[in-house]
Design a protein around this nucleic acid. Structure first.
Lengths: 238, 238
DNA sequence: TTGACCTATTGGCTAGGCCACTGAACCAGT
DNA sequence: ACTGGTTCAGTGGCCTAGCCAATAGGTCAA
């Protein structure tokens, strides 16, 4: 399909995603919102008018509005109209800003889960687990040495530790809030000197796990999460 | 507006939200997915059929699918069909049930979450929160005095503490594994003398929270979870 | 075996229409 | 003057009906 030498390239791009009309419409609406500086509470034009202007049917426009509603950009009110609920657009940083008040919750939750995970990992880690953890550390260090922020290595490290805890349930819950954590991670590692400090924290955690010292692992993870939580956004927010 | 003595009651319920049809449809679909244990890659029925079965128009169903797509539950593929993309849809509860010997994991997870929750509750509890906690304790005691096991009071207590932590995210995760905990709870409280011991544990937790001592609350909760974990199911399992 | 082609199935999108809700203007009774 | 009901224009909610477009899988010839 799609004319290609198949199967050889492991990174072969998957099925190409066809943009649906409603997606384009949704994007046009959001950019229209930002361009015109619409704020929370401002009204969008009536559906009929908007549909005509955008050159799509009301049904399609309606789909776009559903999408925007799910994301939390607009609120559609029967009989009244459509109003903007979040003036911010979609970049990651801005997304965090929009959820600035949720950030502390994410950190609390992360602390709860990862502290326990670290302790369990110290008890249960296999040699295989340790190997994965070390690899993640090396990858992170190499990335930082090369001038990167070590975001991917950071992610791998925490993933490896989670695996080492050998608790399907905890892993699932971590996965559940993974997206949220990712946002804070990028923000945190963007601060100067932070990647190296973070790496040191990882080392301490890894050593405690290697030594099989559950309490030390738990404490080290707690300290690490604490450090990572100190992001600019949090200080700015309220 | 809406015929009311305005402004006097600060807790007056806001504008009531009208459920749109697509929301109900989306929910029905997700529960259908979980009930039938559909996994990533499994197909949903064709839109036309699904719409007929659910008794809605294709347009509405389409809106529901857009919503589910945005959330990341399904992928709609032109000309091919609709497939489930998120294994997460399938609730954690079911995933765990599949392996009966996962009980230790439930306890680990419960410990991770509730220990943190207790600490947060000690920091953040309002008078209202304390009242709810006390009420739960009283209910549990009354039930035990009457010869019951205090299951409901136990549940209320932990719910009240979770509320007092004022973290929506942690509350949500607790809710996720609530079903699983319930089973261990009933099992635990069925052992002789256990209800009274458990009640004492609750009291210790409540006092620490009332005193605002996060560490003590955390420790007390940990001890309590530890105690509760000593159930027959655990000993039997493997 | 390969590649081109057909075709049934399935989603994408439109058009047009009726119904339900909201808010504001208006009116009547107190 | 105030309250409460009524009306009505504007707006979203949802439906029916239909055609278009993409996909997968089969068929058949080279």
């Amino acid at each position: 399909m799609a004319s290609s030498s198949s199967g050889t390239n492991p990174l072969f791009p998957g099925r190409l995603v066809r943009t649906r009309l409603y997606e384009q419409v949704a994007e046009q609406i959001t950019s229209w919102i930002t361009e015109n500086g619409l704020r929370t509470g401002d009204r969008l034009p009536p559906e009929r008018e908007l549909a005509t202007r955008l050159g799509v049917s009301r049904a399609t426009l309606s789909q776009a509005l559903v999408a925007l509603e799910v994301i939390g950009v607009v609120a559609v009110r029967h009989g009244d109209g459509t109003v903007v609920t979040s003036s911010r657009t979609r970049s990651i940083v801005q997304a965090i800003r929009a959820h600035a008040d949720r950030l502390p919750e994410i950190i609390d939750t992360r602390d709860a889960l990862e502290t326990k995970i670290a302790a369990l990992a110290a008890d249960r880690r296999t040699d295989e687990d340790l190997k994965r953890i070390d690899e993640a550390l090396e990858a992170m260090e190499a990335d930082i040495d090369a001038g990167g922020r070590g975001v991917e290595g950071d992610e791998r490290f925490h993933g490896a530790v989670t695996t080492a805890a050998h608790s399907l349930l905890l892993a699932r819950l971590m996965d559940e809030i993974g997206e949220l954590i990712k946002e804070t991670r990028i923000e945190s590692l963007s601060q100067p000197d932070r990647p190296r400090t973070s790496l040191a924290g990882h080392r301490a955690i890894a050593e405690a796990i290697r030594a099989g010292d559950a309490d030390a692992a738990s404490d080290a993870m707690h300290a690490h999460v604490d450090l990572v939580s100190d992001v600019a956004l949090l200080r700015e927010a309220r």
